[in-house]
Structures are given as structure tokens and as C-alpha cells.
């Protein structure tokens, strides 16, 4: 069935699709990809010529290289739909998910793909992200009151404000751009934005009873964050990391350690309410 007039009422015209049909890309359009190749001993950018197809993303190009040009090119990926957070890389210097980065966005300019910088390189586009998993293990897990076995009634608003934090797909792009971790090599003193989001989700859970303020103040290193919001800019899930997670946590820590009266007051009013909201 062609795009005739018979669709009338049911289906609106879709200009996007019309464009695809009217102007299919030239069959031999080719883009140059400069991809980092190397391992712990060193490496370099190598150029690959990849045919461009309509709607292609950078991960498609990496797959093309693997399948047709060099099957040893290492990269992580799983879902190819921006749901798993595996295919993080730096595309033209910007931390991105390769599965969500359209090739046509670069208007025919060469595209450079490098591994994320903040973590040690394993090979090509694959880095050693195990530090993140060690950090996660240091965070006291969700702890409901003993004996409070549910099923629970929780107000929709109390739960919904946590959804933003729970959306995190652990792509670690925020860790990659965090100044403390990236410029100051601060993995020994700051957990990074990902785990501020994780801790915020726990601390603000209406049924959680644990306290992570000491951890945040100490090993978690929340004080090192100077709120430049770079993490937010690269978050593919659009989590408002600083305003909604880090700043409320900073306020809690400030209260707990420097203003015990306000901390007590907050406790009495129901400590799971985030301050300032």
C-alpha cells in the first residue's frame, strides 16, 4: 500500500517518514570513523570507512567494523536501545551511549570514538569499570524496619519522586565527566555522581531506616562535589543529579554534622522527607 489518501482519518501524515521515502540516502555514502585501538600498553586512533545507512547510530558503525573490517575490535554493548548502559564511549570528545548517538548528527564530519577516560583501559573501547561495583558494595543496602513485612502502602508521590533515581542505567557517563574523578583522579575520595543518585534513592525511600550520612561525609566524599552539573549534562536518562540528589544529600550531611538541631527537627518531622522541597 503506498502512501495514498486512504489513510485519511486514522493515521496522520508523518513528515519524518515521508522524508525517508522521498530521499533515501545515497547507496554508497561513507563516513570515516577514527576508533581508538589499543590496550594497557598503549594505542592509537585508526581510521575505518563505513557505509552510512538511514538512521544509523555510532554503535552500528562499530558493529560494521567488527563484522567486515576487524573482528578483534572490542566494545561493550547489550540492548542497543539505551536501556542497559553498556556502550558508553567518548564520541568526538563527548561521553555518549553509542547506541543513541546518531551518525547524521555529525553532518559528514569525521567521527572519533574513544573509550571513556576516567577508568583504566582494558582494550579498545572497553574499560575496567570494576571500581563502581566495589563502591556499590560499600553502600549499606535498603533496610526496612525489622518485622515490617508488608505488603506496604506507600503514597504515590513518595514513590514517584524516587523513580528518577531508579531510572539510572549505570552507564557511568556521569562518573566519566565528574571533575573530581576525571581531572583530580579522585576515585579514592569521592564515590561520584552515580552513587550519590544511588544513595539518594535509598535515603529518600519511605521505608528505609538506615543512615548513610556518615558514609557520605567520610568515604563517600560528597563534600568534594562543587556542583558544576557536568554529570547532568551527559546523563542519557536526564536525571537531575545535582539538584535532586546531591544537593539534598549535602544538606542532610551539613545538618547532621554542623547543625544537629535541624537534623533532630528533621528526624522528628519524619526523616525521609528531602529538605527544601
Amino acid at each position: 500500500m503506498s502512501d495514498g489518501g486512504s489513510r485519511g482519518t486514522a493515521v496522520e501524515a508523518r513528515p519524518e517518514q515521508a522524508r525517508w521515502e522521498a530521499a533515501p540516502p545515497g547507496p554508497r555514502a561513507v563516513a570515516t570513523f577514527q576508533v581508538f585501538r589499543g590496550d594497557r600498553t598503549g594505542g592509537e586512533l585508526r581510521a575505518y570507512q563505513v557505509p552510512v545507512t538511514e538512521g544509523m547510530v555510532v554503535l552500528d558503525a562499530i558493529h560494521y567494523i567488527q563484522h567486515h573490517l576487524d573482528s578483534t575490535l572490542a566494545c561493550r554493548w547489550n540492548c542497543k536501545a539505551a536501556k542497559c548502559g553498556s556502550c558508553s564511549a567518548e564520541v568526538n570528545g563527548r561521553p555518549r551511549l553509542m547506541c543513541k548517538t546518531r551518525v547524521d548528527e555529525f553532518g559528514g564530519q569525521p567521527i572519533t570514538v574513544r573509550p571513556i577516560k576516567v577508568f583504566p583501559l582494558i582494550k579498545d573501547l572497553v574499560t575496567d569499570v570494576s571500581w563502581n561495583y566495589r563502591v556499590n558494595k560499600e553502600i549499606p543496602p535498603f533496610a526496612p524496619a525489622p518485622g515490617d513485612a508488608g505488603p506496604w502502602r506507600m503514597h504515590p508521590e513518595d514513590v514517584e519522586r524516587l523513580f528518577e533515581f531508579r531510572r539510572c542505567i549505570e552507564c557511568f557517563l556521569c562518573q566519566d565527566v565528574c571533575h573530581v574523578l576525571r581531572e583530580h583522579r579522585g576515585t579514592d575520595r569521592y564515590y561520584g555522581p552515580r552513587f550519590m543518585v544511588r544513595i539518594a534513592a535509598l535515603e529518600m525511600h519511605p521505608k528505609d531506616t538506615a543512615s548513610r550520612e556518615e558514609l557520605l561525609h567520610g568515604k563517600g566524599g560528597i563534600g568534594y562535589c562543587n556542583i558544576t552539573k557536568c554529570c547532568e549534562e551527559v546523563c542519557p536518562e536526564h536525571i537531575t543529579i545535582t539538584d535532586n540528589a546531591i544537593i539534598p544529600l549535602k544538606e542532610r550531611v551539613a545538618d547532621a554534622f554542623y547543625d544537629p538541631w535541624r537534623a533532630l527537627l528533621r528526624r522528628l518531622r519524619g526523616r525521609k522527607e528531602p529538605r527544601g522541597t
Partner: peptide, 19 residues
């Protein structure tokens, strides 16, 4: 499902606060 919730999983709620 309820066990997941006890482990910290969060689901959309009914207006009266159930899953």
C-alpha cells in the same frame, strides 16, 4: 513480587498506595 518490594524495588502505585 512483594518480596522484591521488601528488597527495595519500587512499582507504580494505586491512589491508595498499593502496587
Amino acid at each position: 513480587v512483594y518480596e522484591l518490594e521488601r528488597w527495595g524495588g519500587l512499582f507504580d502505585r494505586t491512589p491508595d498506595g498499593r502496587i
